[in-house]
Simulated scan of single mutants.
Amino acid sequence: MTSVLVTPPVSEPVSVDDMRAQLRLSGSQEENLLTEFIEAARAQIETETRRAMIRQGWRFYLEAWPMGRVVTLPIAPVLSVNEITVYDQDGTGTTLDPDDFTLDRGACPGRVRVKLGAGIPTAQLQGLEIDFTAGYGDSAADVPAPMRQSIRLLAAHWFENREAGTDLAMASLPHGLDRLISVNRVLLL
């Protein structure tokens, strides 16, 4: 089972102005660096929590249907399942009809139930692909405040501790970041 980001988010949940306020910076100094820290912090927090913040497209590869034909998707929250493609022995893909599967958005992470008899993969490896959209929405306002705060804390930490070799940079993370991440982490069973 592998998941790949297909369509990255078009915006960030934290703006450069938000970071300037967090760091108490005036002026427009180091705007490019702040942008890079925001992007990197968002990617790190998303990886740690297994949550997508701003709407983004993912592809999930499986070799076969799991027991009960219920697939737990690896990223939360799931907004929609766009397409499920099943491959035969020759590598020819067949797209399932949307009536052949149901998305359970209430579960965290989201789950897809596929009807019995719909699309039986026969390829040996990567027998099926599920394309889905994950995230809280299209804007920063859609992302929960604790998730945005975790980005600000981590980006600010990296901004203030730029030398990787310093004892402070190596020994600590910002106060409270571990708690913000742990309570928002999606558990995989």
Score class of each variant (00 low, 15 high):
7 T>W: 13
7 T>K: 06
7 T>N: 07
9 P>F: 04
9 P>I: 05
10 V>H: 06
12 E>V: 04
15 S>P: 01
16 V>R: 05
16 V>H: 02
17 D>L: 13
18 D>N: 06
21 A>S: 14
24 R>F: 01
26 S>G: 10
33 L>K: 03
36 E>L: 09
36 E>Y: 06
38 I>C: 01
39 E>S: 06
40 A>Y: 00
40 A>Q: 05
42 R>K: 11
43 A>P: 01
45 I>C: 11
48 E>Q: 13
49 T>M: 08
51 R>T: 00
55 R>T: 15
55 R>F: 01
56 Q>R: 08
57 G>L: 01
58 W>H: 10
62 L>S: 03
67 M>S: 12
67 M>Q: 13
68 G>R: 05
69 R>D: 05
70 V>W: 04
71 V>K: 02
74 P>Y: 10
75 I>A: 07
79 L>S: 10
80 S>M: 08
80 S>W: 03
81 V>G: 12
82 N>F: 02
85 T>E: 12
88 D>Y: 09
90 D>K: 12
92 T>H: 07
92 T>W: 10
92 T>Y: 10
94 T>M: 12
99 D>P: 08
100 D>V: 13
100 D>W: 03
101 F>E: 08
102 T>G: 03
105 R>S: 14
106 G>D: 12
106 G>C: 05
107 A>N: 15
108 C>V: 14
108 C>Q: 12
109 P>L: 11
112 V>L: 10
113 R>L: 06
115 K>N: 15
115 K>I: 14
116 L>W: 14
119 G>C: 10
121 P>Y: 08
121 P>Q: 11
123 A>Q: 10
124 Q>D: 14
127 G>S: 13
129 E>N: 13
130 I>M: 05
132 F>V: 00
132 F>K: 06
133 T>M: 12
137 G>I: 04
144 P>I: 15
144 P>Y: 11
147 M>G: 00
152 R>H: 07
152 R>K: 15
153 L>H: 10
154 L>Q: 14
154 L>A: 12
158 W>K: 12
164 A>H: 07
164 A>W: 09
165 G>L: 11
166 T>Y: 06
168 L>E: 15
169 A>S: 15
170 M>T: 10
172 S>K: 13
174 P>L: 04
176 G>N: 02
177 L>G: 01
180 L>Q: 02
182 S>W: 01
182 S>M: 07
183 V>L: 04
183 V>R: 14
184 N>S: 04
186 V>S: 06
187 L>K: 13
